[in-house]
Amino acid sequence: MKLLQALADGAVVAKRNLIKIKRVPDLLVFSTAAPIMFVLLFAYVFGGSIQIPGMDYREFLMAGIFAQTVLFGATITGSGLAEDMTKGIIDRFRSLPMARSAVLVGRTTSDLVNNALVIVIMMITGLIVGWRIHSSPLEALAAVGILLLFAYAFSWAMAWIGLLVRSPEVFNNASFIFIFPITYIANTFVQSENLPAGLRHVAEWNPVSAVTLAARELFGNTSPLQTPPDVWPLQHPVLASLGWVVVFLLIFVPLANYQYKRAVAR
């Protein structure tokens, strides 16, 4: 009963956040503009210089773009919370008999919905530049599911950072330090095999690599001439991705909740 109530409270807060997407459509336009530009940049500018044996680079590219897009989308959680913290609305929430967790649950849930919307737009963009799904609809759906699940877990990490820094401007800079290496020292845009030894190890164990490869395999965007690097997470990318989701949630849900309680008690 208490759990149901908490979920209902979370849904009310999520609805509040989603109304913002409707009222400020520029937000969605600009959160998709950047990834679309990335697709064009890599498909038509850099793509010609990157060779993936046995397949077209654009087929390789899109799973990486999806991973990047949902990671960037997950940062909205942090900036949204940081923005809320600067306003009186958090005090109002805290004075209401609602579940303590509702602000965080609502925020991460609405950002998940936002990410689902963005990924649909990105898939359409991919189809336009020549990306195709070579697997069954169920596998394709599983790919989207893994991307979104990972983004959801990641948004709890962003929530924690957003509550830690308490200012949307600072968050945007702080999250970049985190987002940049995790997105690019990976197999998102290039094959990790081509990286120098040190970076290659980082890339192979980077959670984002597992997620990207899982999506790549489930969409059927792999080359028959390529075998995944011989490390466990990339040999079992789906399992590894789900494992990372659990690890992220176990670490960052309590941390974010702790930080929320601490931050509002000032």
Binding site: Q5, A8, D9, V12, V13, K15, R16, I19, K20, R23, V24, K87, G88, I89, D91, R92, F93, L96, P97, M98, A102
Partner: peptide
Amino acid sequence: GQYAAVDDNLTGFENLDMVGRLYH
């Protein structure tokens, strides 16, 4: 409070409706 604790992006109705829902 001192700072009007209302959400700018919501309408007046949506703001109060939300508070009502959170009071269950």
